[in-house]
Write a protein that binds this DNA or RNA. Structure first.
Lengths: 204, 204
DNA sequence: ACCTGAACACCGTTCAAGT
DNA sequence: ACCTGAACACCGTTCAAGT
């Protein structure tokens, strides 16, 4: 059997969908490719390197947004990142285990910071606000992709007397409407960013 | 050798500090306790159960905040959660691998939602805004605890021509001042929450 | 250049048997 | 009640040897 790097990457992403991140092993991957255990190591020098390539593959095209006012651009980039992570099982966890410096991730970071600089933020505020946006996208999406298990255990654990406030909000946590939940948090953050945009830099 | 549940938990947290989450194995833990591999399984039915107990142990006392205006209380809770996660190596990753329904985590969630309900938010907005705050704390702290490796690889990967905006902000990402970075994002989120507090509910 | 075969040094978990 | 000893079914990684 003869395989190339792209085939390994594609097979790894397919195996991710089938088995999930926790069951994704180099040995199962080799078997799926019809090859011996050691063979994939010629194409990726470690499992970590493969996971990084997978993470960046997920982000293909995420940074390609058109001309928009800064706040709509920030929102669009966040939404595109979320959709990209949702496209594969455990996509958000794969991405968060890796985080930065591969091509598509860099393009995303560059586009997001660019929108915030254009809004009039300092480089520092732009970088930090970009992180806040990305933290929300990734953390929200991780929870969204884990959600299946959560609700029953939580309902059983919350004592209305000991945790009255949590109990009052229990119908909304974890959210049965992840899409709205996502937008709510993103709107909050963009509203917060807007408060630090200097006056005289209106966006629309 | 005779051990009890508390000793296993304490030894696990010490091993976490020494070895880090990735090197924390049930076998190393047994060895540290001077006991055979199977022995810890009498006290915790799985590694996952042990990690959950560790996560909740980290959060001891986090919810114990005094009477404060709602926004100061939200800020205080977030800061206390961050400090609790920073207290042990990889604390944020341990917590994020587990997330909810143990006693100290429930107390934290209850206190945070309580502050937001008192601000005048609906249960839904309170629950969702609480999640946004917690996402920020956890994601920020994970990155803060990983930081050692990140900066050089990133500097090498950013091409000033291809990523001009990212390049302009490179001194701030990853942040050399995690404390300020944390407060910046938290302030943003609290400012965003303030925009959805109904009028006639001033807090100070 | 790219794969096989086989090994090394680990894992989490289970469970009969002991005390 | 709590631990030992030993096994089961896995891991990631390396590397001489083959083609």
């Amino acid at each position: 059997m003869r395989i190339n790097r792209d085939q390994v990457l594609a097979a790894a992403l397919d195996l991710l969908d089938e088995a999930g991140l926790d069951q994704l092993s180099m040995r199962r991957l080799a078997t799926a490719l019809g090859v011996q255990n050691g063979a994939t190591y010629w194409h990726f020098r470690s499992k970590q390197a493969l996971l990084e390539a997978m993470a960046d593959e997920l982000l293909a095209g995420v940074a390609d947004v058109g001309e928009l006012p800064w706040d709509a651009r920030v929102t669009e980039l966040a939404a595109r990142l979320r959709r990209a992570l949702l496209a594969r099982r455990d996509g958000a966890r794969v991405f968060s285990g890796v985080f930065f410096p591969l091509p598509n991730a860099l393009a995303y970071g560059n586009a997001l910071i660019g929108a915030l600089l254009e809004a009039g933020l300092s480089p520092k505020d732009a970088a930090w606000s970009a992180d806040t946006v990305t933290y929300h996208v990734v953390a929200h999406t991780i929870e969204e992709q884990l959600a299946p298990e959560a609700p029953d255990r939580l309902n059983a654990a919350v004592d209305p007397l000991r945790h009255p406030h949590l109990h009052a909000a229990l119908a909304h946590v974890p959210s049965p409407h992840p899409e709205e939940h996502f937008w709510h948090g993103l709107r909050l953050i963009v509203a917060g960013i807007r408060t630090e945009v200097p006056v005289g830099k209106p966006d629309h």
